[in-house]
Simulated assay, not measured.
Amino acid sequence: MIIDFTDKRILISGSTAGIGLAVAEGFLKAGGHVLINGRTDAGVETAIMGLSQFGGRVDGFAGDLGTEEACSRLMRQHPEFDVVVNNLGIFGPQDFFDTPDADWERFFQINVMSGVRLARAYAPGMTKRGWGRIVFVSSESALNIPEDMIHYGFTKTGQLAISRGLAKRLAGTGVTVNAVLPGPTLSDGVAEMLKAEVDRTGDSLEKVAADFVLAQRRSSIIRRAARVEEVANMILYVSSEQASATTGAALRVDGGVVDSIV
């Protein structure tokens, strides 16, 4: 299978590190014209420098797409995309009874409304052209709501509802909408979360992450954290021409954490 994104314009929100950066690399290697996004000019410029080795064309947009202002500014500067990957997201453990309204609202705006705004802005153009791909990067936590991150799980379940409903809304247009559900993944955010344990034990990040999976996600079949490239591969496939019959789906890259046969 040869996946080719030549002449395709691709937006990846939250893509200066982790899964988003790996996705950007994959699209560039496949010939795509990629726009990466981060909150600061410095972060975007650093990511662009690192990605330049992979060929293709890469541009950047600095702004917090969890805000309406930044989304509007992006739309004015870049009015059309063929592929939109809604990767922007935040997470972090916090007890339900210690999570104030402001944190619920912040998680909702960043994890959910960023994707809503971008899909609402770019899907009409895709429909007119008769081709497009919208991908929401959700999580296995959408199905296995973590008791220490209920506010996070809520936003990831919300993404599934939006992606399924929007896929039906765009039926017959040539535009597909899907969600990808990573499990525990060795992203920069997870590395930061596990840093204290790495420092305490002296073990490698991979070993500490595997121990975390075995302790906290005992249903995992691969018995380790996924690599960001493994998640990116699914996102690239579902964004490709070859995935034209896949829409309204929740595609797991969770290492078997979700204990279900469907």
Rank of each mutant, 00 (worst) to 15 (best):
G183T: 11
A70P: 09
A167G: 00
R106E: 14
G43V: 12
G153V: 09
G256Q: 10
S141N: 14
E197N: 07
I36G: 00
M193N: 09
G125I: 02
E140D: 11
V84S: 03
R129D: 04
S204T: 12
D7C: 02
N86S: 04
L170W: 02
E80Q: 15
G115M: 04
M149T: 01
S239V: 00
A191F: 03
R120D: 05
V262E: 08
K29D: 00
D203G: 09
E230T: 02
P182W: 08
R39K: 11
I110N: 12
A17G: 08
E80K: 12
P124D: 01
N178K: 07
G125L: 13
R39V: 11
R39F: 03
S15W: 04
I3V: 12
A196H: 10
A17T: 15
P93L: 01
E147L: 09
G20Q: 04
T176A: 13
S139W: 09
S52H: 05
V83Q: 03
L28N: 08
K207F: 01
R120Q: 07
A232P: 10
I222T: 13
A196T: 06
F5E: 10
L251Q: 04
F107W: 10
V44H: 01
N233S: 15
S72V: 06
D98R: 11
F107D: 14
D7T: 11
A119V: 00
V23I: 11
I222Q: 13
A226E: 14
G248Q: 08
E80T: 13
K128H: 08
T127P: 02
S15G: 10
T67K: 05
R252Y: 12
R57W: 03
G130R: 05
L194R: 11
G14M: 01
R117C: 03
S260D: 15
G32S: 04
L35M: 15
A62W: 00
E68N: 12
A123I: 01
V180C: 08
K29L: 01
S72F: 01
P184H: 01
K168I: 06
P146Q: 09
I90V: 15
A17Q: 15
N86G: 05
S240E: 02
M126W: 01
G20N: 04
L214V: 11
D64G: 10
V198D: 11
D188K: 14
E229M: 06
I90H: 10
G56W: 03
D59A: 14
I235Y: 06
G55L: 05
G255F: 02
E229V: 07
R200K: 13
T67C: 10
D148A: 10
S163F: 06
L214I: 13
D101H: 13
R200C: 05
V112M: 14
D254T: 01
R133D: 03
A243G: 02
N86V: 05
K8N: 10
G60A: 04
A102L: 09
R217M: 14
S219Y: 08
Q77F: 05
N178F: 00
D188N: 12
S138G: 09
G38M: 03
P100K: 03
A123K: 00
I19E: 13
P184K: 05
N37D: 04
T201N: 04
H151D: 07
E45S: 12
R129H: 05
F108N: 09
A121Y: 06
D98C: 12
S220V: 08
V258Q: 09
Q77G: 14
I221L: 15
A123R: 00
D82G: 13
G60H: 00
L88K: 13
G63D: 10
A142W: 04
